[in-house]
Amino acid sequence: MAYQTLLTTLENNTLIITINRPEKLNALNSTVIHELGKVIDEVYENASIKSAIITGSGEKSFVAGADITEFLQLDSSQGEALARNAQQNVFDKIESSPKPIVAAVNGFALGGGCELALACHFIIASDNAKFAQPEVNLGIIPGYGGTQRLVQIVGKGRAMQLVMTGEMITAQDAMQYGIANKVVSQSELLQTVKDILQLIHTKAPLAITKVIECINNFDHTQQGYDFEIKKFGECFSTEDMKEGATAFIEKRKPNFKGN
């Protein structure tokens, strides 16, 4: 299948999915979200695909957040629908995939990009990778599972700090926090992930599926995600959200007023 914003290559039963919007640092827009949903369906359905890698084009960015230009016209209910659609059709499907899906983070993984990586079964990062949930700078919160998945990985206190400050952390910090499993050079990144997946391919596929199911269901409910989606949608009725998004587009500091 041909995609506008994705490049796909099947190699040794691993589908390499490359988000290909380098001029926008591979930011997520509605087309990317739609096409990611379609390609994840292909991972589920195509028997020749045993695993998948998600990465970004170029050496600068994995996914540098969402495309903020799409946010300004949304009200509360539309913001909630945006988050729910992406969660159900992309992020939850990645997390629940019966086949391993690994993030090869090759640069900036910010906002929705960090959440996309967190939804994968694990992360391998290049040494220039940077991670952040900077949504508070736009007057919103993570809407694609960030407040839920990050807590599971790094713990409540560290997640609180990262999400409330929006601070960016290095690949080495991400590995120390448990976000990334391994940090390698940019040139080694894809091959490292391929090698890990080839090892997994030697294991019993049904057992791998059950491993994913069991680990995903450890003290894990939909309630937290639904609550996050609702709160994400509520942000779109605030003036601060409009100010944050406008300031981002105009390349200036936002003037938040708490309304």
Score class of each variant (00 low, 15 high):
204 A>D: 15
204 A>S: 13
205 P>S: 09
205 P>R: 07
207 A>N: 06
207 A>D: 07
207 A>V: 08
208 I>L: 06
209 T>R: 11
209 T>S: 09
209 T>F: 08
209 T>Y: 07
209 T>N: 08
210 K>E: 12
211 V>C: 14
211 V>I: 11
212 I>K: 14
213 E>I: 08
213 E>K: 04
213 E>L: 04
213 E>W: 01
214 C>K: 08
214 C>M: 11
215 I>A: 15
215 I>L: 13
217 N>H: 06
217 N>G: 07
217 N>Q: 08
217 N>P: 00
217 N>R: 03
219 D>R: 05
219 D>T: 04
219 D>P: 06
220 H>C: 11
220 H>P: 06
220 H>I: 00
221 T>H: 14
221 T>W: 10
222 Q>M: 14
222 Q>F: 09
223 Q>R: 09
223 Q>V: 01
223 Q>E: 11
223 Q>S: 13
223 Q>L: 11
223 Q>G: 10
224 G>F: 04
224 G>E: 12
224 G>V: 03
225 Y>S: 11
225 Y>I: 14
225 Y>V: 14
226 D>M: 09
228 E>Q: 08
228 E>G: 04
229 I>T: 15
230 K>M: 08
230 K>S: 07
231 K>C: 05
231 K>L: 08
232 F>I: 00
232 F>T: 01
232 F>R: 05
234 E>W: 05
234 E>D: 12
234 E>Q: 13
236 F>Q: 09
236 F>A: 11
237 S>M: 06
237 S>R: 08
237 S>Q: 10
237 S>I: 03
237 S>L: 07
238 T>I: 03
238 T>C: 12
238 T>R: 14
239 E>A: 02
239 E>H: 01
239 E>W: 02
240 D>L: 07
240 D>N: 02
240 D>Q: 03
240 D>W: 00
240 D>M: 04
241 M>D: 07
241 M>Y: 05
243 E>S: 02
243 E>G: 04
245 A>M: 15
245 A>V: 10
246 T>C: 10
247 A>Q: 01
247 A>M: 03
248 F>Y: 13
